[in-house]
Design a protein around this nucleic acid. Sequence first.
DNA 1: TATTAATTTAAATAACTGTTTAAAAAAACC
DNA 2: GGTTTTTTTAAACAGTTATTTAAATTAATA
Lengths: 211, 211
Amino acid sequence: MKRDMNCPPFQKTEEKIKEAAKKVFLEKGFDGATSRDIAEAAGINIALTNYYFRSKEKLFMNIFEDMIHLFFEGSVHILNKPISLRDKIVELIEHDFELMKKNPNLVIFIMNEVHRNPERLVKAIGYVKQLHHTLFKIQVQEAIDKGEIRPVNSLNLMTMIVASVQFLFISKPMHMQIWQMSEAEFARFSDDQKQLIIDMVTSYLFEPVKA
Amino acid sequence: MKRDMNCPPFQKTEEKIKEAAKKVFLEKGFDGATSRDIAEAAGINIALTNYYFRSKEKLFMNIFEDMIHLFFEGSVHILNKPISLRDKIVELIEHDFELMKKNPNLVIFIMNEVHRNPERLVKAIGYVKQLHHTLFKIQVQEAIDKGEIRPVNSLNLMTMIVASVQFLFISKPMHMQIWQMSEAEFARFSDDQKQLIIDMVTSYLFEPVKA
DNA sequence: TATTAATTTAAATAACTGTTTAAAAAAACC
DNA sequence: GGTTTTTTTAAACAGTTATTTAAATTAATA
């Protein structure tokens, strides 16, 4: 007879595997991670990963989709919030920063896996189509028309913003190695960087220029 | 008796292997690339990679060091050129852009391998210590003291610049997928992005602000 | 409690990994 | 031309890979 899917044992192991797999995949990537790595990190038998997820590839895609979701959902939400353009830009930067602080190797993981296998993104993407038409895009165009900000393509602007934030965390290991930074020093450097980004972007856009 | 190391056959195979290995490693990374991949790409027997480079790890490090060198040498040179700060910033951005155009997956390769194994950077780094004291750093400080530019930490400024350029190419596969760009469209988008970076950075630094 | 289903285990699978071997081929040297 | 050295090859190596099997254990059900 069928088993109640809500009882602890089932959920617990499957969740344990997912958590372990997320950790290992984010650290080592798909190619660098082995089924045994994941099983060991989860403290379970190797066969269980395939019992619950059928294959390494399926387990990976499960987590990859979660990560893509985590990567985009917050930003998409903010891009469509009914707030001023200035506030929106600041909120975008600060949200992205917090996301990166909590998940330091989320970006390098996603970028590397998409680089290795772009087709995977197609399977996981779906709702990201919402990026094509956002309130942000409209607001930028309106602000330009009213002469409130300098003329700028909204996609270029958006790329500039996320580049500044996300590259910092992609290059974190390199920065720490080259400049001999501790975690605390990098955190301080990050905060300075965040402030510079906000300052530079808002100044560039909104500050009136001397004739 | 010893063989003349300058005659064609020796150089040719070793160079063939290096070229193939560079291609494969840059595409798939250390974990994703196999000895057989490289041998096949070079059109040679598998045993030859170990005959010439002793191990996959040694072959990788050989190429990794080249790539680190390629990654830094141009920028370090420009950072120390005796030209104006404004010209230097523009030249830095344009040089990095050209480098990325010619080697689209150089940055994601380096960032990912350093992320996977930071100790490797120590072995390959050496001369990058030159980054610590550059003419650029002095110039920024002088310009601040003279009130010619806004006060800004030179490392933060430098990071901002390379982030904008390099992130674009790290995220190239993602951009092309999400926005359904062709290579040509991405190239155009890149150029717009480059112009925005130059415009934003120089405006922010040099433009006098209305009281 | 007996039975049925779900979960976990150890062991084995076949394919693939980096690396080595020993013999063959090519080149260099006298 | 004959000998020695260097280069290339096919084959095998031992270890690891993802995945499967079939048996053992646990939990659920009636």
